[in-house]
Design a protein around this nucleic acid. Structure first.
Length: 446
DNA sequence: GAGTTTGAAACT
DNA sequence: CAGTTTCAAACTC
């Protein structure tokens, strides 16, 4: 039996719960005056993984399967494969409500570099404050670019420049503005970062804040093997290529308004992933930490810590939440959580905290972070009573229908008899049911 | 605000 | 890679 790749994702939105941002406090050991804005900071954050939008094809097209683990009550990504129909359900980069969050495509399966999905990137820049960029190649003339350029480039200019030079980019990319005004774009489907030179004028008052005179692709891809932290690597390169720009702005300027939680680290020196600032790729600023080394004063040590983290886990600085779109439901947790006692209904749970539901990637026990899970009163209903309902969502039904349809088309294409066609479809249906039931039991973790 | 709980990260 | 320890945030009182 041949089936199309069906990839479907139906993470549902959890009711938004407040994410408070405590008021900033003075960093325990590092005062503002200790931090030199615009000084060389090492960007080491890498953007969303490209796998967020690249459909997969099962290696064995004869197997028409909804594989265990591909069926999630919440983030449903199951696959079936039809060789010839090439029907494909795919999910957008960001997942909306469960009823209509995939597209049934009948065209060829796009290759890894042919994604038509929106790409987006957002990157904290390892200056003193994060710089956030996001861009949607699908709407290239109106990218959302918000930058706090180290060289104080004009926001609009950078935005326009990025629009121009990245219009060909169709995969999630990460950008970085180095101290030298160089933008590094990393397409995770490409072998390395693309270096774009922002030929900015010296920060001269007459020129205005960092005039971007030209923007050009100054190189191809990094010779480095692609790693999960291309920005960090590329920063090393670019740092040698162009001198670091002098401080162009003061703490408290453009990006200062972007609030973030102050950390309270006491023992990690804010150089381990325990520290949220460090993990997020930003230096500590106005934190409550003690003995903080996550600042320009300890650049070398911080650099080593970054390398160390990347050595342990090349994806250490990737965002944990893949997909997603600002203001909407986010995607899914790349690694998944491992909660055991919180039922994934407290902020201890990274999925819950990120306002996303748990998926098959999670190894949590007793998870209730799924549609309907949180509203379920254990006194009145057990998870067992209700959870299948959340597994067989409209999206699942629709996906199954897609599989069945694909089978029917396959039978037709092969000039199978009606009886044989029915058999194929029913067989497929049975297979789908089997996989769904397996998924049900898998999530029966009460 | 102190103490406890929790789960990710780090370590062995 | 599994088990343990460390750590800091979330939570409770």
């Amino acid at each position: 039996m041949n089936s199309p790749t069906v990839e479907l994702n139906t993470i549902q939105s959890k009711q938004e719960h407040g994410s408070d941002n405590p008021s900033s406090k003075d960093c325990g050991s590092e005062k503002d005056s200790d931090i030199h804005p615009g000084s060389a900071g090492a960007p080491f954050w890498a953007g969303p993984p490209s796998d967020a939008s690249v459909p997969l094809i099962l290696p064995h097209p004869q197997q028409h399967t909804i594989q265990p683990g591909m069926v999630d009550p919440l983030s449903l990504r199951f696959q079936c494969s039809c060789q010839s129909t090439q029907c494909q359900m795919t999910y957008p980069d960001y997942l909306l409500d469960q009823s209509s969050q995939y597209h049934l495509l009948t065209g060829p399966v796009p290759g890894p570099t042919e994604s038509s999905h929106h790409s987006s990137f957002s990157a904290p820049w390892f200056t003193n404050e994060p710089i956030l960029c996001s861009m949607m190649p699908g709407d290239l003339h109106s990218p959302l670019v918000s930058i706090c350029p180290p060289q104080a480039m004009d926001h609009q200019q950078v935005q326009e420049g990025l629009t121009e030079v990245t219009s060909h980019i169709t995969q999630p990319v990460v950008c970085n503005v180095t101290g030298g005004g160089q933008v590094v774009l990393v397409n995770h489907c490409e072998p390395g970062p693309v270096f774009l030179t922002l030929e900015s004028a010296p920060p001269h008052r007459d020129d205005g804040p960092g005039q971007v005179k030209a923007m050009s692709v100054s190189g191809t891809h990094s010779q480095h093997h692609q790693t999960a932290c291309p920005l960090y690597e590329s920063r090393d390169q670019t740092a040698n290529m162009q001198p670091q720009a002098p401080p162009a702005r003061a703490v408290g300027s453009l990006c200062e308004s972007k609030s973030r939680k102050p950390c309270h680290c006491t023992r990690s020196q804010c150089l381990k992933l325990y520290c949220e600032c460090f993990a997020n790729g930003v230096m500590c600023n106005n934190c409550d930490c003690s003995n903080c080394h996550n600042n320009v004063e300890h650049e070398m040590k911080r650099h080593k810590a970054i390398k160390s983290c990347l050595g342990r886990n090349p994806d250490a600085f990737r965002p944990k939440i893949a997909g997603g779109k600002s203001g909407e439901v986010k995607g899914w947790h790349n690694k998944g959580c491992n909660c055991k006692r919180s039922n994934c209904l407290k902020n201890y749970c990274e999925c819950y905290e990120a306002n996303i539901m748990c998926t098959s990637s999670c190894k949590c026990v007793g998870c209730r972070n799924y549609d309907g899970g949180s509203e379920m009163g254990l006194k009145e209903k057990t998870i067992k009573d209700k959870w299948p309902v959340s597994v067989i969502t409209p999206a699942v039904v629709q996906a199954v229908c897609g599989c069945l349809l694909a089978q029917a088309e396959e039978a037709e294409r092969e000039d199978q008899s009606l009886a044989q066609a029915e058999h194929m479809v029913l067989d497929e249906f049975g297979h789908c049911l089997t996989q769904i039931v397996k998924a049900m039991f898998k999530y029966n973790t009460y």
